[in-house]
Computed example of a mutant assay.
Amino acid sequence: MTQDAAALPGPARSTDGVGAIMDAAMRGERPHHRAYEPLGQGPKDVFITSWAKSGTTLMQQMFHQLRTASAGGDMDFDDISRVVPWDDTAYLLDFDMTAPQRAAPRGFKSHREYERLPAGQRYVVTLRDPKETFVSHYRFLDGWHLERGAVTMEDFMPLWLGGGPGGCDCFTHLLSWHARLGEADSLVMTYRAVVRDRAAAIRRLADFCDIAIGPTEEALVYERTSREFMAAHRDRFDDGMICRILEEKAGVPATSDSTKVQATGSTLDALPPAIAETIDAMWAERVAPVTGHADFASLAAEVDAAHG
């Protein structure tokens, strides 16, 4: 390792250290970056904007395979966020958000709430139990941004509340999209409902995006959004572009485990009771008074019922 490389922060040993990683990654010029611009005419763009660890990658893949299904689908990419670009990381990646996409409609990823997204477009959201997102987010960063085992779940709360690049806290996001239920510009589903009945979610997303599909196209998308298929192609879903930036500018090895496709889904078995109690208290303070739902299961039942 060179002297310059040795001076880079590398994987963090505390939640505060993640800030140093991102500060280092943001340094330097961005000659190719162009901010998002809406189309002057044509179909409205589609923003896939679930909260962190709530099914965003699955929906990116579902959307991209849908819009390319009539041509046999498309897996010729190194990173799903190259073909369905992540608006919140575009500056970090020196990415041109105005570049032509491979198929219509155009699609973009975000973790933002409705109020901070470009107006007048279409929005796809999958909502997930906040406690499950906590476990999944910890599994995702432990061994990548964080040196494996250096930060306990009990100390992870500040990172979870951040919601990922450009994001917001989980409850701001959830309340924003719960308010969009039934709006024509928003397709709001629960992550578990999508996983439980992926075929129905595929048809729902196709209809929302005005993409005509038949049985052949539906079968292709169904296969390519399975956990088995995505795990077999996990190198397309591991934030490869971000990995390269973090290695070059922050000393975080690109060989770290950054895959978003886990062999098994995240459950609540490993969640410390104190964290569960803290999340429950946040829900009671912020979500229950607005939605009338005492917990996520109750809210999810409302969201799922909206789709019949």
Rank of each mutant, 00 (worst) to 15 (best):
Y114M: 10
E115F: 00
L117N: 02
L117R: 02
P118C: 00
Q121F: 00
R122H: 09
R122Y: 07
Y123L: 11
Y123I: 10
Y123M: 11
V124K: 14
V124W: 07
V125F: 13
V125N: 11
T126M: 12
T126V: 12
L127F: 15
R128I: 07
D129T: 15
P130S: 13
K131E: 15
K131G: 14
K131S: 15
E132A: 11
E132S: 13
E132W: 03
T133C: 12
H137V: 02
H137L: 00
H137P: 08
H137A: 03
H137N: 04
Y138K: 00
R139D: 11
R139V: 02
F140I: 12
F140T: 13
D142L: 04
H145C: 10
H145V: 11
H145F: 09
H145T: 14
L146V: 08
L146F: 05
E147I: 06
R148M: 04
R148P: 09
R148E: 08
G149W: 00
G149A: 01
A150G: 09
M153P: 07
E154V: 09
E154I: 08
D155Y: 00
D155I: 00
D155K: 01
F156Y: 06
F156R: 01
M157Y: 04
M157T: 13
M157K: 13
L159G: 02
L161G: 12
G162T: 10
G162P: 11
G162V: 03
G163P: 13
G163W: 04
G164D: 07
G166N: 03
G166C: 02
G167L: 04
G167S: 08
D169L: 03
C170R: 15
F171W: 10
F171M: 08
F171D: 12
F171K: 08
T172N: 06
T172H: 05
H173W: 00
H173E: 09
H173I: 11
